[in-house]
């Protein structure tokens, strides 16, 4: 178990290092930051001063080390547009995003898991076909199309709900539904195929054949085993709580991290983009780590340390 944990932890750290390196390489490859920020007509002294201030006059490996050190200390630079620390700018947007993504996650799990399990237990029934059709739709209808259709129906035609903004809890409804429905389809599809795979296993037939009631077979044997692949998907969904609403936030003009990212990308505000990239990587890696630990709990075979 310790070895298993250690390996996972090392791998998580490595991924973070890889993301930081990626950010650094891309940042430096994208051209001279001094030229990007300042206009080419800026006086030479001003450019030189800018380079010195940002450490751009040092050798590249030293810049990399400095960069790494700064990030370890939580210094992610200032927003090149409004001069405030990028980290502050990003962190103050997080609650708004979570306000959408957490209820959406609950909706995904609450809708997707039971639908997938039910569909698998009643394979080829009408309900199964409907769940699968919904799952395919959830996957193939892009979130901006679904969001805009919902706006068209509930905000424009019926006038029941606001089309965007963040005035009251009612403006949360449409974005949460948009986010949740698509994810629920994906989750239902995964849960169904995981359940079907488990239901085909010999131990299910054995348990059934020795007279265990079907409900108990499902609860005691099928569900725990099917949980393992499903937990992976849920882990990915938890990992994308912060950045999973980029498109939907834009559709509904919701002032969250995703909206900030889109604006920062459009303005080429590199410090903010980089800060969000690192934040997302960290949440993603942490979520994966938790999922790995959960595997150990769910699947005793993994506790030995091997796969």
């Amino acid at each position: 178990m310790i070895r298993f944990l250690g390996l996972r932890l090392a791998r998580a750290m490595l991924t973070i290092v890889l993301v930081v390196t990626f950010a650094f390489v891309v940042l430096r490859m994208s051209g001279d930051p001094a030229m990007t920020i300042m206009s080419p007509e800026a006086p030479a002294e001003a450019i030189a001063a800018f380079r010195k201030a940002w450490g751009l006059d040092q050798p590249i490996w030293l810049q990399y080390l400095h960069y790494f050190g700064a990030i370890l200390q939580g210094e992610l630079g200032q927003s090149m547009r409004d001069g405030r620390p990028a980290l502050v700018l990003v962190v103050e947007r997080i609650p708004a995003t979570l306000l959408l993504t957490v209820p959406a996650l609950l909706l995904k799990i609450g809708l997707g898991l039971p639908a997938g399990i039910y569909a698998a237990l009643h394979r080829n029934s009408l309900a199964d076909r409907m769940v699968m059709a919904g799952a395919v739709a959830g996957f193939t209808v892009p979130s901006f199309v679904l969001g805009l259709l919902l706006v068209l129906l509930f905000a424009v035609q019926l006038g029941w709900l606001p089309s965007g903004g963040q005035e009251s809890w009612r403006s949360m409804i449409l974005p949460v539904i948009t986010l949740g429905l698509g994810g629920a389809g994906i989750l239902a599809r995964f849960t169904r195929s995981a359940m079907l795979e488990v239901l085909g296993q010999p131990y299910i037939r054995t348990a059934s054949a020795k007279g265990v009631p079907w409900a108990l077979v499902v609860r005691g044997h099928a569900l725990p085993n099917a949980a393992i692949p499903t937990v992976t998907i849920i882990g990915f969904m938890i990992g994308s709580l912060i950045a999973g609403a980029v498109v939907v936030e834009s559709v509904f003009s919701w002032p969250g991290v995703g909206r900030l990212l889109v604006v920062a990308v459009a303005n080429r505000d590199l410090a903010v983009v980089q800060c969000i990239l690192l934040l997302v990587a960290t949440t993603m890696v942490s979520a994966n780590l938790i999922v790995d630990l959960l595997y150990g709990v769910l699947d005793p075979r993994l506790r030995g340390g091997g796969h």
Binding site: G239, V265, R268, L270, Q274, L277, M284, V285, N288
Partner: peptide, 15 residues
């Protein structure tokens, strides 16, 4: 392990 949309947006911001 990385949501591709975020990576793509970062690259677009940089390049």
């Amino acid at each position: 392990s990385m949501p591709f949309l975020i990576v793509a947006l970062s690259v677009l911001a940089f390049f």
